[in-house]
C-alpha cells in the first residue's frame, strides 16, 4: 500500500518535471508538495487498492508498435477509399472474437487495438468474447484469423526478460 503511494508520487513528480521544466528549489519543493498531496488524496479515496495493476510488457513491444502502425495505416486507407467511393460499398456486420487466452490487461489492450484501427471497433465485451462491429466482411475475417491476438499474447507473456513500462 505504502509502496504504491510512493510509486505514484514518484511518477507524478517525473510528470510534473516534464510538464513544467522549472528547476528552481522553491518551485521544485512546491511541485513535490502537490504531488504528495495528490498521492495522499488517491490513497484516501482508495484508488490504489488491489486493482492497482502494473503494466508489464516484454521486449516484444518495439516489434509490436511498427506492425500495429502499418496495420493502422492500411485500415485507414481502406476505410477512406470506401468513404470516397461513390457507391459506398459497405456491409456492416457484428462478429465475435475469442479472448479466453488473454489476461485482464491483455483483454483491455486487445479491445483498444481493435477500436483504434478504423473499420473495426469493439462494441461489447465479456470474459470470453469481444463483440466486434466491422465495416466490411473482409475486415471481420482478417480479425478472426487471429494475427493481432497472437501478437498481443506475445506482448503480455511474462518471460524472464520482462521490463516495466
Amino acid at each position: 500500500m505504502l509502496k504504491h503511494t510512493l510509486i505514484t508520487t514518484f511518477i507524478l513528480f517525473i510528470l510534473w518535471l516534464l510538464l513544467s521544466g522549472h528547476l528552481e528549489p522553491l518551485l521544485l519543493s512546491l511541485g513535490l508538495l502537490s504531488c504528495l498531496f495528490v498521492a495522499w488524496l488517491s490513497h484516501k479515496l482508495a484508488l490504489l487498492n488491489s486493482d492497482f495493476q502494473t503494466l508489464r510488457f516484454n521486449l516484444n513491444l518495439p516489434k509490436f508498435l511498427p506492425w500495429f502502425f502499418i496495420e493502422l495505416v492500411k485500415s485507414n486507407l481502406d476505410v477512406s477509399w470506401r468513404i470516397l467511393h461513390p457507391t459506398l460499398s459497405i456491409q456492416p456486420n457484428i462478429s465475435t472474437v475469442p479472448i479466453t487466452k488473454h489476461s485482464e490487461v491483455g483483454k483491455a489492450v486487445y479491445a483498444n487495438c481493435i477500436t483504434l484501427t478504423p473499420g473495426t471497433y469493439s462494441i461489447d465485451i465479456n470474459s470470453a468474447v469481444i463483440e466486434v462491429h466491422s465495416l466490411t466482411k473482409n475486415l471481420a475475417h482478417d480479425l478472426q484469423r487471429g494475427e493481432m491476438s497472437k501478437r498481443i499474447l506475445a506482448l503480455e507473456s511474462t518471460s524472464a526478460k520482462t521490463s516495466k513500462l
Binding site: L72, V73, N76, V79, S80, T117, P118, H133
Partner: peptide, 16 residues
C-alpha cells in the same frame, strides 16, 4: 447511413 457505420468514419479523425 446509420450510427454504427459513422463510428468508423469518426475513427479516422481520432486515429490517423
Amino acid at each position: 447511413p446509420d450510427f454504427f457505420s459513422r463510428v468508423h468514419a469518426a475513427g479516422i479523425v481520432d486515429s490517423l
